[in-house]
Simulated scan of single mutants.
Amino acid sequence: MNNDAPAWWNLLDDQAAAVARMISQALPRPIRELGPVHARALMNTAPPAEPITPLDHVEQLTVPTRAGAIGARLYRADSATSSRATPALVYLHGGGFVLGTLDGADELCRAIAAGSGWTVVSLDYRLAPENPYPAALEDCVDAFAWLTRTAPELGIDPDRIAIGGDSAGGNLAAALCLHRRGSALPVAQVLAYPAVDDTFTAPSWSEFADAPLLSAADARWCWEQYVGAEHPGGDHLAAPMRAESLRGLPPTLIMTAEVDPIRDDAEAYAARLRGEGVPVSLTRFTGVFHGFVTEVGVFAQAKQAIDEVCLYLREIARA
């Protein structure tokens, strides 16, 4: 890079720097200037013809919600004829509430299912701005409730269902746990660089304002698409950090990227959970930027993160 490169550039490893260059060349304008339709056309990519992680069983599902049916995809490493009920992870893809598909999380979900022995159910919730808050959360809440009811039919243990997601999906996973507090909670939450705060004031928002893939300005634009530009803030189911208390939430794994505007918010959420008695495991992955977890086969840190998720889920299952 030239002498005008931002200070954080030297924090990226060689692979991340190369990918950052590719992103800057592929996007003619920032996401907020492209708008939802053009951004989706450019960024919502199909999975490869041959998956990196082949599985015995991948099944398309239709899940009923209060607003109608949504799509889902079930991944299982065991044979579909296995008689043993498995624990399950409900996975919510990222994309700033505006972008993202089941295909974008396909390789990640395959790798988690294969490495953990858990069934993974990936949800295709409604996107903003066409369906603003709380549409996506309602889809996730309804789908989770449906899965707990129908788990035996799907070969899933209804008492061992966890929730997880990356970025906006991490927000929705955290909000779902807050929504279900006082009833049957997920057995764990797995959050990759979750968007949990709507104040945008932590130091990382300035330090990495122009970071690759997700700049601070694009992140705020995505938030406005989700909640609306006039949203007053303070709603803990939109921004989980706003909750008066985090006590009683399930054990939590949080993973962050070093070069990411969201980093400090996610790590502050981990600290607050731990301070309020929730068992928390937190890992910051150095050398990478927001979105790395789903880039299976691209970043070494993605494999490291998946290995950590799989180990964590196996430990949860034993517990």
Score class of each variant (00 low, 15 high):
Ala216Asp: 08
Leu191Trp: 03
Ala238Asn: 08
His290Gln: 10
Val259Gln: 01
Leu178Cys: 08
Pro132Gln: 07
Leu89Met: 04
Ala300Asn: 07
Leu311Gly: 12
Ala162Leu: 08
Thr81Gly: 11
Glu59Met: 08
Ala18Met: 07
Leu213Asn: 06
Trp9Val: 13
Thr150Lys: 12
Thr65Lys: 12
Val19Glu: 02
Ala271Glu: 14
Ala49Asn: 13
Ala268Cys: 05
Ile31Pro: 01
His290Tyr: 12
Val293Gln: 02
Val309Ile: 14
Tyr312His: 10
Leu102Val: 04
Leu213Ile: 04
Ala69Leu: 14
Ala192Val: 14
Ala162Tyr: 03
Phe200Met: 11
Leu214His: 01
Val90Leu: 10
Ala219Tyr: 04
Tyr269Pro: 00
Gly117Val: 09
Gln189Ala: 07
Val227His: 07
Gly228Ala: 11
Gln304Trp: 00
Ala243Ser: 04
Ser122Asn: 07
Tyr91His: 09
Cys140Gln: 02
Val187Tyr: 00
Val98Thr: 13
Asp4Cys: 01
Ala46Trp: 04
Asp197Tyr: 04
Ala216Pro: 05
Asp265Asn: 09
Ala268Asp: 13
Arg272Gln: 10
Asp210Gly: 10
Ala188Pro: 05
Asn131Lys: 10
Leu123Phe: 07
Val90Pro: 05
Asp260Phe: 04
Ser122Leu: 03
Val296Ile: 10
Asp264Phe: 10
Ala85Arg: 15
Glu308Asn: 05
Gly165Glu: 11
Val121Lys: 05
Gly233Asn: 14
Gly182Lys: 05
Ala184Pro: 02
Tyr133His: 11
Arg84Asp: 12
Arg242Ser: 08
Ser215Gln: 03
Asp198Asn: 13
Val90Phe: 05
Gln189Pro: 02
Gly291Met: 03
Arg126Leu: 02
Ala219Ser: 11
Val227Ala: 13
Ala105Met: 04
Glu50Cys: 02
Val259Ala: 03
Arg84Thr: 11
Ala211Arg: 02
Asp4Ser: 13
Gly117Cys: 09
Leu237Val: 03
Ala302Thr: 08
Ala145Trp: 06
His179Trp: 14
Leu42Met: 15
Ile163Leu: 14
Thr201Gln: 14
Trp118Asp: 06
Arg220Cys: 06
Leu311Phe: 11
Tyr226Asn: 14
Arg272Leu: 11
Ala209Leu: 09
Gly287Ala: 01
Ala46His: 10
Arg274Met: 10
Glu315Ile: 13
Asp106Ile: 01
Val121Glu: 10
Glu130Lys: 09
Leu214Ile: 12
His93Pro: 06
Ala319Gly: 15
Glu50Met: 09
Ile156Leu: 06
Ala88Val: 11
Asp197Asn: 08
Tyr193Ser: 01
Ala173Arg: 01
Ile262Phe: 01
Leu147Val: 00
Leu92His: 03
Tyr125Ser: 00
Ala266Cys: 11
Val259Lys: 00
Met43Thr: 15
Thr101Lys: 02
Gly234Pro: 15
Gly117Tyr: 00
Arg318Ala: 13
Ile161Gly: 07
Ala175Glu: 08
Pro240Phe: 06
Glu267Gly: 07
Phe285Tyr: 14
Gly228Ser: 09
Ile23Tyr: 14
Asp307Lys: 09
Asp56Arg: 12
Leu99Glu: 01
Ala266Tyr: 06
Pro36Trp: 12
Pro28Glu: 07
Ala219Gln: 13
Thr148Glu: 14
Thr81Pro: 03
Ala111Ile: 08
Thr86Ile: 07
Thr81Leu: 06
Gly95Ile: 09
Thr81Ser: 14
Ala184Asp: 15
Ala85Ser: 13
Tyr91Ile: 00
